[in-house]
Amino acid sequence: MALGARARARGHYGGEKLFTLAAAAHGQPRIRALHPFPTHGTPKFLRSGPPIDGRDDTDLPYALCSGPPYKMRSIRGGALGQGATPEEAAALMVAHPPAGL
C-alpha cells in the first residue's frame, strides 16, 4: 500500500499531502538525511528519528499546514517562500539549508 493510501486509511490529518511532501523532500539528497515528522497537519523535519536525541531542530524548514500551496517557513528564519507543488517546496528547503546540512 502506498504511503498516501496508508495515511488516508488511518485517517491522519492531511495525510496524503504530508506524505507527498515527504516523498518530494526525499528526492533531494541534502534533505534525505532528515526525518519527516508530521504533526498537527504540518510536515516538519528532524535531524534524528525516534528516539529524538534532543538536538535543536528549530532551524529546519517546515511546511505550514500542508498545502498546496506549500508555505515553507523556518522558526528562526521566518518565511522561506511558497511552492505550488511538493517538488517546488522541497526545492525551497534546499535553497535555504540550515548550517551544517
Rank of each mutant, 00 (worst) to 15 (best):
A95N: 12
G27E: 15
A89N: 02
A90S: 10
S74H: 10
A95R: 13
L92W: 06
G78V: 09
Y62M: 02
F19K: 03
G77Y: 01
G49L: 11
G54H: 04
G49R: 14
K71I: 04
P51S: 14
R10Y: 08
S74P: 15
L18H: 02
S74Y: 03
P29A: 04
A33G: 13
D56V: 04
A63D: 08
A95S: 09
G11P: 13
P97A: 00
G11E: 07
P86G: 03
G100Y: 08
G27T: 11
A5W: 01
S74V: 07
P61Y: 05
L101A: 02
E88D: 12
G81V: 10
A91W: 07
G67N: 03
K71W: 00
S66Y: 00
Y62W: 06
E87A: 13
L101M: 13
A5V: 15
A84Q: 09
P36M: 00
L3Q: 11
R55T: 01
Y70D: 03
P43E: 03
L64M: 08
V94F: 12
D53Y: 11
P43G: 01
L80T: 04
D57V: 04
Q28R: 15
H96C: 04
P50V: 15
S74L: 06
L18Y: 01
A89V: 01
V94K: 13
S74I: 05
G100N: 11
L64V: 10
G77L: 06
D56I: 09
F19A: 01
L21M: 12
P43Y: 00
A84H: 10
R10D: 09
K44C: 07
